[in-house]
Amino acid sequence: DETGKFLVLALYDYQEKSPREVTMKKGDILTLLNSTNKDWWKVEVNGRQGFVPAAYVKFL
């Protein structure tokens, strides 16, 4: 149950560059965990948590 969690859509592919980031593919649906930083949002994708560039995702 994803109640209270926001979902975001990956607009572009992103390859993680550090262990704190996660890789996503364009079209992936991600669970948004934290968006307090304007540049990097914490998400969960494929069972992994990490950061992606905020400009690469949008709210569903």
Rank of each mutant, 00 (worst) to 15 (best):
D1W: 09
D1N: 14
D1L: 14
E2V: 14
T3L: 15
T3Y: 13
T3G: 14
T3I: 12
K5T: 13
K5F: 12
K5S: 12
F6S: 13
F6G: 13
F6E: 12
L7I: 11
L7A: 06
L7M: 11
L7T: 09
V8P: 01
V8C: 10
V8L: 15
L9V: 15
L9D: 01
L9Q: 13
L9A: 07
L9Y: 13
A10I: 02
A10G: 04
A10C: 08
A10L: 02
L11E: 05
L11G: 04
L11W: 04
L11Q: 05
L11P: 00
L11T: 05
Y12F: 15
Y12A: 11
Y12M: 12
D13C: 04
D13A: 07
D13E: 05
D13Q: 03
D13G: 05
D13P: 06
Y14W: 13
Y14L: 01
Q15R: 10
Q15S: 14
Q15A: 12
Q15P: 06
Q15V: 14
E16S: 15
K17R: 13
K17T: 11
K17D: 06
K17F: 05
K17L: 10
S18E: 10
S18R: 10
S18M: 07
P19C: 08
P19V: 09
P19H: 10
R20W: 15
R20T: 14
R20Y: 15
R20Q: 15
R20S: 15
R20C: 11
E21H: 06
E21Q: 12
V22H: 03
V22A: 05
V22I: 15
V22F: 13
T23V: 03
T23M: 04
K25E: 06
K25W: 08
K25P: 00
K25T: 10
K25L: 09
K25Y: 12
K25Q: 11
K26W: 03
K26A: 13
K26T: 07
K26Q: 12
K26E: 08
K26Y: 04
G27S: 03
G27I: 01
D28P: 00
D28M: 10
D28G: 03
I29R: 07
I29E: 05
L30R: 00
L30M: 13
L30Q: 01
L30H: 02
L30A: 10
T31Q: 11
T31P: 11
T31H: 12
L32N: 01
L32K: 01
L32G: 03
L32C: 08
L32I: 07
L32F: 06
L32M: 05
L33Y: 05
L33K: 05
L33M: 08
N34F: 06
N34Y: 07
N34H: 07
S35N: 12
S35T: 11
S35W: 13
S35C: 10
T36K: 13
T36F: 10
T36V: 11
N37P: 04
N37T: 06
K38Y: 08
K38I: 10
D39L: 12
W40Y: 08
W40A: 02
W40G: 01
W41K: 02
W41L: 07
W41V: 09
W41E: 00
W41N: 01
W41S: 03
K42T: 07
K42N: 06
V43F: 01
V43D: 00
V43G: 00
E44S: 10
V45N: 12
N46Q: 11
N46E: 12
N46V: 05
G47S: 06
G47W: 03
R48I: 09
R48V: 09
R48K: 15
R48S: 07
R48N: 06
Q49L: 08
Q49W: 07
G50N: 01
G50Q: 01
G50C: 02
F51I: 07
F51H: 05
F51P: 00
V52F: 00
V52Y: 01
V52I: 10
V52W: 01
V52E: 00
P53Y: 02
P53G: 01
A54L: 02
A54I: 03
A54M: 05
A54F: 02
A55P: 09
V57K: 00
V57W: 01
V57I: 09
V57F: 04
V57M: 05
V57D: 00
K58R: 13
K58T: 14
F59D: 08
F59E: 14
L60R: 04
L60G: 05
